[in-house]
Design a protein around this nucleic acid. Structure first.
Lengths: 236, 236
DNA sequence: GGGACACTTCGGCGGCGGCCGAAGGGTCCG
DNA sequence: CGGACCCTTCGGCCGCCGCCGAAGTGTCCC
């Protein structure tokens, strides 16, 4: 074993962090953008707390997760949008292989709620995400012709709606994120995150249970129509 | 072990394909966009041919590589641009951790050639990629404000230069790819690939040895100046 | 046809890593 | 201050997987 390319070593190590079913389960759960406690994740993944503790240690050490300790709780969340994007991209690559259908009504209805609307780390996805993205595009606020980009009208629309778009670091304003239920791109990036935050803050949609699924409220239907001309029926 | 989320299983399996140093070495080598024989990769990775054969089997079965058998040779290449993008993204995530400096002059000079210009699967990267991207941007052909996108002038420029841009599937015309030596985004996507192909076909740059590194020729310096106003000194 | 060559299959070895339960600390609350 | 709770550390078990060399298959070329 002579000297190996450090790039390859790093790549293998990074992939190795994701290459475990329990850790992958955690990363996917954390795509909801919130901080989970170690115990929640252990129950979610179906392993002993001790086992999960070690997994979290690795993920944090590897830079994929950020942790915050509060009292006797250890909260973890994805380290940054970049990591979330990476996990999303990998998951999207996998999606075509989704073969199994839901086994019972509960899973089926949960799956359907997820398909209707959910969050992808910090932006909207599912049918909801697609509908919003399409509406933005149809109104000339977003252009997808030569890559995802906000138009001048789009920038004005965000400003008029009072949704601030402050660029942080290298994160692009607009970015396409491939949806694994719709198989079409939807709006991510700074604009996607700001829009999602506004939707949740203003009560346009609310989270269902502790999952990533979200439900559009009556106020949300009104806002979607007023701001983007979207009919409520488009969401069903 | 109760029933697990199939998404997590798939994600872990996909990451597992990359999570081996030998396989990672292969994937990085294949980022040059060309087809390698099994033997070349075995030598490159420093393992027995039998070992590498099994690795290739897994990578092909997992959909990361495509293979073509010709006589007694087995040629493999990355399955598609999507896979290449995934590997690039993962490698870019790793890059900040690059700590070791080159150990001798040969590595140093090879590394420096790589830093000056190289291909990323099918588009230009390194200093060369950045310079071209900057020039396109400075001339109003590419805008980076709200995500990477070609402007109307940019589309006209490609047409005038006789570089065809046919959209295939979902691949975006313009996309940002983060460079791991320059730490800045450069042009990828359909436009990046077309530009790179033209540069190689027209002899504007040539590959150095069997690596990803490329060298700008005298004709290339002239073309860069004529088409984009880039001074040759910007490349050194 | 024979020999060189590229790759694959097989058997066996060794190490890594995920799993658990038990035991140990730290924190909160009554 | 005592008990409940959340998390972590440790030791041990087990299975997976990457490695190799030897033998086998297929292809090319003389």
């Amino acid at each position: 074993m002579t000297t190996r390319d450090p790039q390859a070593t790093g790549l293998a190590r990074l992939a190795g962090l994701i290459a475990d079913e329990t850790r992958a389960t955690c990363l996917l759960a954390l795509l909801d953008g919130r901080a989970w406690t170690a115990g929640e994740l252990a129950r979610h993944a179906g392993v002993a707390a001790s086992t999960l503790s070690e997994h979290l240690g690795r993920l944090v050490a590897g830079g994929l997760l950020a942790e915050e300790r509060q009292g006797r709780h250890r909260y973890v969340r994805l380290a940054d949008a970049r990591v979330a994007q990476l996990v999303e991209d990998l998951a999207a690559q996998v999606a075509p292989g989704r073969s199994g259908r839901p086994r019972n009504l509960r899973e089926s209805s949960a799956g359907s709620a997820m398909a209707r609307g959910r969050t992808c780390y910090d932006h909207l996805a599912g049918r909801l995400g697609i509908v919003v993205t399409d509406a933005l595009t149809a109104r000339g606020l977003l252009q997808q012709e030569t890559g995802f980009a906000l138009t001048d009208a789009g920038l004005a629309w965000f400003a008029a709606a009072g949704i601030g778009l402050e660029r942080r670091g290298r994160r692009p304003l607009a970015r396409a994120c491939l949806d694994w239920t719709e198989r079409r791109p939807h709006l991510a990036g700074v604009a996607g995150a700001a829009l999602c935050r506004r939707a949740l803050d203003a009560g346009w949609c609310v989270r269902i249970g502790s999952e990533r699924a979200v439900k559009v409220t009556a106020a949300g239907e009104r806002a979607l129509f007023d701001l983007l001309g979207v009919e409520a029926t488009a969401l069903r």
